[in-house]
Every structure is written in structure tokens, then in C-alpha cells.
């Protein structure tokens, strides 16, 4: 047990922070811990959590994805056309929307690997392209999602929010098997040392492209889930989600230098970030002061993780 704590120290800290924040949130919320309150909270968290997971897969192979928000906007707009039918159309539509996200991630990966351009600048450019495509689909916000379907995804099952079930499914059926597989290990290996990974016979290019494509898949899922919650297509949602997804993975203990962190951490980081803003809403602070407090909390949270550096005796360790 102690080993688990040691190994996943960052995730444990993130979990306790989230637990404390959530307790505070439920305590301050006028309606307390009802299913209704928890469902709304979980829905908001899951959107950002999926975006953060998208960011996680790219960050862990030493990239950064500035197109997460744009892929979300594009898939959100596509969903507003594809998900308003019924029955089989919904299955087909959901599949197409996620495939679209994956394709976007795949394009990012292909350009990064074969064009040999830095991910940050590739995704900056492709992000612009994806936003443009989203605007072509929906010049103004509009469209609709099948209400029954959207309700099924955003309400609760036996009193527990569907969003929580989805998160659990992702962790149990996707993340744990992936982490144990050769693919999961290769992703971490590339993030830690590309050269060592290459010399161990890992096909670095393929794995990196797959990591980017997985990022696209989750950005597509984030866009889909955003559609279920808002029930409309909007091309203008990009900027916020991109930057918040980066902040979320860092809060969740994922290192931007690659190779460190877990999907669960990214998920927790996103929930922390969302809970902070929800807390602000019910805290009774003057509304005008809320963005400042939010910024201060974010900065403090990030800085606390780095206090260790000040007490480091060996000055050279600082540069590692």
C-alpha cells in the first residue's frame, strides 16, 4: 500500500486536493450533495477531463497539443449535424464524430513525425485549420442533438452521474489494459528517452503517431460530450479548452518534459480546475474578484509543486 503511495505520489496529492475542494463545494452549495448537484458538477468536469486526457497523450511523448480546443470545436460542430437522428443514425454519428477527432490527431502526428516540425507549432497551425473547418460547418452556433440521447449521457444511472461511469469505464477498460500493454510502455519509453526507446527496438515514429491519434480521439470524445451537455454546435469554444487542458495536466502531475504522469492524474487535474471555478461561483466572493482568485489559486497550486527546488542543496540538480 505504501508503495502505491510512493509511486503515485502526484496522483495521491491531486486526489486529496480534489477531495478537499469537493467537500468544500458540497458544503457551500445551497442544495448540498444531491444527485442533481453532483451530475452537473461531474458533467462539467468530464468535458475538461477528456480534453486533459487528450493533452496527456501528447504531453507524455514530449509534445504539446495546442489544437485540443480546435478539435473539440470541430467535432462539436460535426456532432450537431450527425447526432440529431435516432437509432442506428446515432451509433453511426457517434462513431463518425470520434473518428473525425482521431483523424485530426493523426494529421498532427503525421506532420510532427514526417515533417520534423515541433509539435507546439504544428498544432498551432492545424488548430487554426480545424477552427476554420468548424466555422465552415457552423458559422454561427446552432444545430441540435437528439435529446433522449443527450439526456442519457448527461444524467445519472442508479444515482451516480453518467459522467462518473464514463470516467470509470475509461480508466478500467481502456487505461489499465493500455498501461500494461507494449503500446503503453512504449509511449512512456519515448517520453523518457527517445534514443533509449529507439535502441530498444521501439518503432518511435509509429508510437508517436499513435499517441497523437489517441490525443485526437479523446479530443473528439471531449467534443462529443460537450455536445451532449450543450445540445448545440459552437465553433468558438477552442481557446479556453486548449489552455485549460494544459493547466489541468500539470495540476494532475503530468510533466511537460514527457514520460511522467498518468491518465488518472490528468483526469484529477481537470476535476480540480473545474471544482475551483465552481467553488468560486457559490463562494459569495464579489463576482469581479473571482477571476483574480481563480488565477491566484491556479498559480499557487502550480508553484507549490515546485517548492522542493528551493531547498535543493545540489545546485546542478535544479537543471535536470
Amino acid at each position: 500500500m505504501l508503495d502505491v503511495f510512493k509511486r503515485y505520489r502526484r496522483e495521491c496529492i491531486a486526489f486529496f486536493v480534489l477531495f478537499a475542494l469537493l467537500s468544500l463545494y458540497i458544503a457551500t452549495h445551497p442544495r448540498g450533495a444531491s444527485t442533481y448537484v453532483m451530475t452537473i458538477w461531474a458533467n462539467q468536469c468530464l468535458i475538461l477531463a477528456l480534453a486533459a486526457i487528450a493533452q496527456f497523450f501528447v504531453v507524455v511523448v514530449r509534445g504539446i497539443d495546442l489544437s485540443v480546443g480546435a478539435v473539440m470545436a470541430l467535432t462539436n460542430c460535426a456532432a450537431s449535424y450527425l447526432l440529431n437522428g435516432s437509432g442506428f443514425e446515432l451509433v453511426y454519428g457517434s462513431f463518425m464524430v470520434i473518428a473525425l477527432g482521431t483523424a485530426c490527431g493523426l494529421i498532427n502526428g503525421l506532420i510532427v513525425v514526417f515533417g520534423r516540425i515541433q509539435p507546439i507549432i504544428v498544432t498551432l497551425a492545424t488548430g487554426s485549420i480545424f477552427t476554420g473547418l468548424a466555422l465552415l460547418l457552423r458559422p454561427t452556433p446552432g444545430g441540435s442533438i437528439n435529446y433522449d440521447f443527450a439526456d442519457a449521457m448527461t444524467l445519472d444511472i442508479v444515482g451516480i452521474p453518467t459522467a462518473v461511469w464514463i470516467a470509470l469505464l475509461i480508466i478500467l477498460l481502456f487505461w489499465f489494459p493500455l498501461r500494461q500493454s507494449g503500446m503503453g510502455r512504449s509511449i512512456y519509453a519515448i517520453g523518457s528517452s527517445e534514443q533509449a526507446a529507439f535502441q530498444s527496438g521501439i518503432s518511435v515514429n509509429t508510437v508517436r503517431i499513435i499517441a497523437f491519434a489517441l490525443g485526437g480521439t479523446f479530443a473528439g470524445l471531449a467534443g462529443s460530450y460537450f455536445s451532449y451537455v450543450t445540445a448545440t454546435g459552437d465553433a468558438g469554444i477552442a481557446a479556453n479548452f486548449t489552455l485549460n487542458s494544459i493547466a489541468a495536466v500539470v495540476l494532475g502531475g503530468v510533466a511537460l518534459s514527457g514520460g511522467v504522469g498518468t491518465l488518472i492524474g490528468a483526469l484529477l487535474g481537470a476535476c480540480i480546475l473545474k471544482t475551483i471555478s465552481s467553488l468560486m461561483f457559490f463562494s459569495g466572493l464579489p463576482p469581479l474578484a473571482q477571476p483574480l482568485i481563480e488565477g491566484l489559486v491556479l498559480a499557487t497550486a502550480i508553484a507549490i509543486g515546485s517548492f522542493g527546488i528551493l531547498t535543493e542543496k545540489n545546485r546542478l540538480r535544479v537543471f535536470d
Binding site: 489552455l243 477571476p291 483574480l292 491566484l296 498559480a299 515546485s306
Partner: peptide, 22 residues
């Protein structure tokens, strides 16, 4: 603090936004 500049400057930006809104 050796915080990655991409995250820290982002946080600074949101603090400045907060001050401006206030």
C-alpha cells in the same frame, strides 16, 4: 521555481486578467 514557462506564464496571464477585471 523552475516551473515550465508555458504553464507559469499562462497562470500569470490569468492573474493579470483577474486584476484587470477587478
Amino acid at each position: 521555481f523552475r516551473i515550465p514557462s508555458m504553464v507559469w506564464t499562462l497562470a500569470v496571464n490569468s492573474m493579470l486578467l483577474g486584476v484587470a477585471v477587478l
